[in-house]
Design a protein around this nucleic acid. Structure first.
Lengths: 251, 251
DNA sequence: GCTTGACCTTGCCGCGACGTCATGGTTTGT
DNA sequence: ACAAACCATGACGTCGCGGCAAGGTCAAGC
């Protein structure tokens, strides 16, 4: 047989056959006068063995091991590992499909897929008509990607729905072009600190050894306009003294 | 933030971040005076989006498509395809796990894993004490790899168990060193043809357009000693006239 | 001031199981 | 005689980074 014939007989491509030759899995057969490989039935049997093993999902070097020491012991051993590996893959796929199903239920937000817990919070509170509010949503999504916390979202919900906070956000918006010593900064800081109840502070996650990520605070400040950065700084300091565990929160 | 910081914040490696830059998924941020990349919170939000999408199993160019046209339509579409793809993978894995379970039940033969139907036949008929018998088993395994046929195995079973056939195989063995005009060829051919019942002929699969694979017959003949090849040739011719659909069979 | 160690930069090879040219010789059929 | 269909070798592409090389930079401790 020529290479296309044995390949068709066993059900693989000619490229695969040559690949097996290259790896030494299948011995090179005798050549005809013109240089063509000339396969025997024995070669077909060997090739078929390789195909059955690869179809089970064995890697080619595992196939090599199995056909090398022809005891059946190695085979069952490899098959055991393989089954465990497939079980893990199956579990992974099922988990992702479950997440997909959750996402497809209600249309994903423009931010892309987030955890269902955060999705509930975001859909319960329609986009606040505020630049700071939009930034806040982004930060929540970021926080969600880095782990998230369902309890925190629950604690945040009444706060997010309060008309008072919406008003404070609009006052923050007005500071977009203000100087860092604007007289509105002091009162607004006090109002913000007062508006955040203790339950929210208590629900902030953050283990003791994990005070956000290094550099994040600076980047957060740099993201604000000067006067807004000032407010954020003051609010965080005030909250830190109010609750000793606190270090900052996504808003 | 520097690259290690944003990577830690979002939960990816610095290598991945640079990779996304290279692919254009994430815009290159401004550089500090020393050449270090300087990331903002906005970059973290973008990076987090990428991470969420890749964790769902999206390929990176699909991620690029999704974040490019920011309408949510493309996303749900890609998610649909992805779910279908995952469903296929899951089915494939389950099928392979099922085959693995079958194989692990009774220890696999030395030939490696074969279909359960053939495994039943082979284990019901312990290895025939004959060189031709061993070759026959190889051919059956080969046939099994190329599709197999449960009905054929069933039809073959009584034949494989018959003491008469075992005797004939030993007579074939004796022709290993005989000349192609040995006087034992004629009677042995007749006996073989007579020993194969019509049910076996009827069970030979092979659709009309698929007369084995080109070149296989020649390779099969070449695999035998001269006198044995002669017998095989004659038997196949006789069977072809006996049943018009027949063209050859694994023995 | 010097070293140490932990960062940062660009760039290229490796992985796994082949698919896909590219380039050229051989055989077969009309 | 020429096209179609084989065969050969060899090299690059896939996908999502990991790992390494060969440096430059920076903060801290001696």
């Amino acid at each position: 047989m020529r290479i296309a014939e044995i390949a068709a007989l066993v059900g693989v491509t000619t490229r695969a056959v040559r690949h097996y030759h290259h790896l030494g899995l299948l011995p090179e057969p005798a050549r005809r006068a013109n240089g063509y490989r000339d396969y025997s039935v024995r070669d077909a049997v060997l090739l078929a063995r390789i195909r059955r093993l690869t179809e089970l999902g064995l890697a080619l070097d595992e196939v090599r091991d199995v056909i090398a020491d022809d005891a059946g012991r190695e085979l069952t051993e490899v098959l055991g590992e393989l089954d465990a590996d497939l079980a893990r893959q199956e579990a992974g796929i099922r988990a992702r499909r479950a997440r997909l199903a959750e996402l497809m239920e209600d249309p994903p937000s423009a931010e892309g897929p987030v955890s269902p817990a955060l999705a509930r919070l975001l859909s319960a509170v329609p986009p606040i008509d505020s630049a700071m509010g939009a930034k806040d949503r982004e930060l929540l999504v970021l926080f969600d990607t880095a782990g998230g916390s369902e309890q925190f979202y629950e604690a945040l919900r009444p706060l997010a729905e309060s008309a008072e906070l919406h008003g404070l956000y609009r006052r923050l918006d007005e500071l977009a072009d203000a100087a860092p010593d604007d007289p509105r900064i002091g009162p607004l800081t006090d109002a913000l600190v007062a508006a955040i109840p203790d339950e929210v502070l208590a629900a902030i996650p953050q283990g003791p050894g994990q005070p956000v990520v290094a550099g994040f605070g600076e980047a957060l400040i740099a993201d604000f306009a000067p006067a807004q950065a000032e407010v954020a700084q003051l609010v965080m300091e005030a909250l830190a003294t109010k609750a000793p565990t606190g270090e900052g929160e996504p808003s």
